[in-house]
Design a protein around this nucleic acid. Structure first.
Length: 212
DNA sequence: GGCCAGGTGTAAA
DNA sequence: TTTACACATGGC
């Protein structure tokens, strides 16, 4: 099997593999479009999602899963709550600091969501390219494709070796944007570019988890 | 019991 | 600019 662009990869997963016909969330990421995604991007770093769910559950139980509460919380206490997700001391400090900065620079999540850009995110401690793009795509509903180890691994299977993160990201985005009409035909309905990117990335993750 | 997961920051060379 | 390493849990 050979593919020459990301649209062909999309078809491979969507049609031949039939992955993710039913999604628990329209954008794949649980509780997408919410502040929870921002916290989740840090929690999920180098950790299985199952354990992130536990950590998020602990935050909810303690009424900590919002900007103001996290900004004012004790980082040590926060660390105990997110312990299942690993790297808990580091993640606790970063989640608290990020919350403080969002509050300081944007005032609330909605304003953050509508105005933040990649540059601002990349300056935050704990947010690299993947986490920043995840926030843009899954929390802020932007037209950004998220690249991760799964994407690189899957593409390697097809003979592609991308050196740079952004190189792979552009390749993924370009192939989709150049074939939007065909994608609308496959979905049988108009989806936003954000939705297409979000679901496609999710598809890659689910497929790679099971079969690579 | 070792390996790895929905990475990132930092400190060397 | 590249490489090495720390951060840490828990499921398999």
């Amino acid at each position: 099997m050979q593919i020459s662009n990301s649209f062909e990869l999309f078809k491979f997963l969507k049609i031949e593999k039939g992955y993710l016909k039913e999604l628990h969330d329209p954008l794949w990421w649980p509780n997408s479009k919410s502040f929870e995604v921002v916290v989740g991007t840090i929690l999920t770093q180098q950790t299985k999602w199952h354990k992130v769910e536990k950590a998020l559950e602990n935050l909810k139980t303690n009424a900590l899963l919002d900007l103001k509460s996290l900004s004012n919380c004790d980082a040590k206490f926060l660390a105990t709550l997110i312990k299942p997700s690993g790297f808990y001391n580091t993640k606790a400090k970063r989640i608290k600091l990020l919350s403080i900065n969002i509050l300081k620079d944007f005032g609330n999540f909605k304003t953050f969501k509508n105005n933040v850009n990649r540059e601002w995110l990349l300056k935050q401690k704990g947010l690299g390219k993947e986490s920043s793009d995840s926030i843009l795509c899954y929390a802020c509903e932007r037209e950004v494709f998220v690249v991760d180890n799964y994407s690189a691994k899957l593409l390697r299977k097809f003979g592609y070796n991308f050196e740079e993160y952004d190189e792979l990201k552009d390749w993924m985005e370009d192939g989709i944007l150049s074939n939007l009409e065909k994608i609308y035909e496959i979905y049988q309905e108009e989806k936003t570019i954000n939705e297409i990117f979000a679901r496609f990335h999710g598809k890659i993750v689910e497929y790679a988890k099971e079969e690579l």
